[in-house]
């Protein structure tokens, strides 16, 4: 099992001060806007930046401790880093890129190449082994980069905005791969996209101006953020259930239709759906139209959310305009019908 990663550090130059623990095999999403200090945290964990104070520990090993002047250089940390851009070494083939880690750890060329071939197969890139990075698309390169990071058999994985540089069409594919490979690995994923956090992480820490402002289980933080900033920045609907003919069956038996991010597996298997509140509209009566999910719910709460009003219901939250709130005369306890396009519902295996 991948060890626990403890980050308790400050970086004065970037005004970052955080304390986070990523449990064994857990994936923590570090969510926040650009400039919140997320990448600084990753750099400090990887050893590419020296914190001004505090400690970084991985399992029983202290990687950096300001007080005891302990410092383990990046190459000895067994922490792999996946960058926003794939950053494949341009002068090496895909295979040699993946073999780089094993070779650097002293494995003979042949063993390293065998390991690299296995990892390329794992990410479905065997056919591209001989290609140079400039001959790969963004998504392909990112998959090779994932294979390269994993080929070092890291004790922990750091992922920096892995999908932001990718086209929307290929992002789900890579996201699914990431979800698969990080399932048992202690992982920190930096992202400014709440959807990534929802789909990839077990827990979410929301960062703002160098501080963690909210921290908790992913479903809870995204659907019921307690901090103002968390509410503004996060706020995603997460619905759990089981597969049923390509849709999600909620515990009450109702179906939620959506787009499968990946193969949902056999009927009855656990799945989750992610829906942005802005994709949910509210009606007083059921609407008719095949692409929409129409679901009855009751209003729990109303609160301002930027220029819109976030309407919390016992099922999904919806962001609607104040004018719509007035027109619908919404108030706590009202029975309403929620409507959301199937294309706005992201389904994935839980």
């Amino acid at each position: 099992m991948s060890p626990t990663l403890v980050l308790d550090l400050t970086v004065a130059a970037r005004d970052v001060a955080i304390a986070l623990t990523v449990a064994q095999g857990e994936t923590l999403a570090l969510l926040g806007p650009n400039g919140a200090g997320k990448s600084t945290v990753l750099a400090a964990a990887a050893g590419l930046l020296r914190p001004d104070s505090g400690t970084v520990r991985l399992g029983d090993h202290t990687l950096s401790d300001h007080q005891t002047r302990t410092w383990v250089p990046p190459h000895a940390r067994r922490i792999a880093l996946l960058a926003q851009d794939a950053r494949l070494f341009p002068h090496l083939s895909a295979l040699d890129n993946v073999a780089f880690g094993p070779r650097s750890q002293g494995q003979p060329k042949r063993t390293a190449h065998e390991a690299a071939a296995r990892w390329l197969e794992e990410v479905g890139m065997t056919a591209y082994a001989r290609r140079r990075p400039h001959e790969l698309s963004g998504g392909q390169a990112q998959k090779v980069a994932i294979a390269r990071a994993l080929a070092t058999e890291p004790a922990a994985l750091l992922v920096d905005e892995p999908l932001s540089a990718l086209d929307v069409e290929v992002a789900p594919d890579v996201r699914d791969l990431l979800r698969r490979v990080t399932s048992d690995l202690t992982t920190v994923i930096v992202t400014h996209d709440a959807l990534d956090a929802a789909l990839l992480s077990d827990r979410v820490a929301v960062m703002h101006a160098g501080r963690v402002v909210e921290h908790g289980e992913t479903g809870r933080v995204l659907s019921r953020p307690t901090s103002d900033f968390g509410a503004r920045f996060a706020g995603l609907n997460l619905v759990r259930g089981v597969t049923s003919g390509g849709a999600l069956r909620m515990p009450d038996g109702r179906l939620l239709h959506g787009i499968a991010e990946s193969d949902l597996g056999q009927d009855g298997g656990p799945v989750a759906a992610v829906v942005a509140p802005s994709a949910v509209s509210i009606h007083l009566e059921a609407t008719h139209g095949s692409p929409r999910n129409s679901l009855a719910a009751s209003v729990v709460d109303l609160e301002p959310h930027g220029p819109t009003v976030r309407v919390r219901t016992d099922l999904l939250s919806a962001d609607i305009t104040p004018a719509a709130v007035a027109e619908l005369r919404l108030a706590r306890g009202n029975r309403v019908v929620l409507s959301v396009k199937a294309t706005e519902v992201h389904l994935h295996r839980a």
Binding site: A46, G47, L48, P73, P74, H75, A76, R77, R78, I79, A80, L81, A83, R87, F89, P90, H91, F100, G101, S104, Q105, R148, A149, T152, L158
Partner: peptide
């Protein structure tokens, strides 16, 4: 240093990074 950083996190020591990444680039 972008590629050098990545190489280090892949377990390559300074000499390996210099020889296999810095110089070729």
């Amino acid at each position: 240093t972008r590629y050098e950083d990545i190489a280090a996190t892949l377990g390559a020591g300074p000499t390996t990074v210099f020889r296999r990444v810095t110089l070729p680039l």
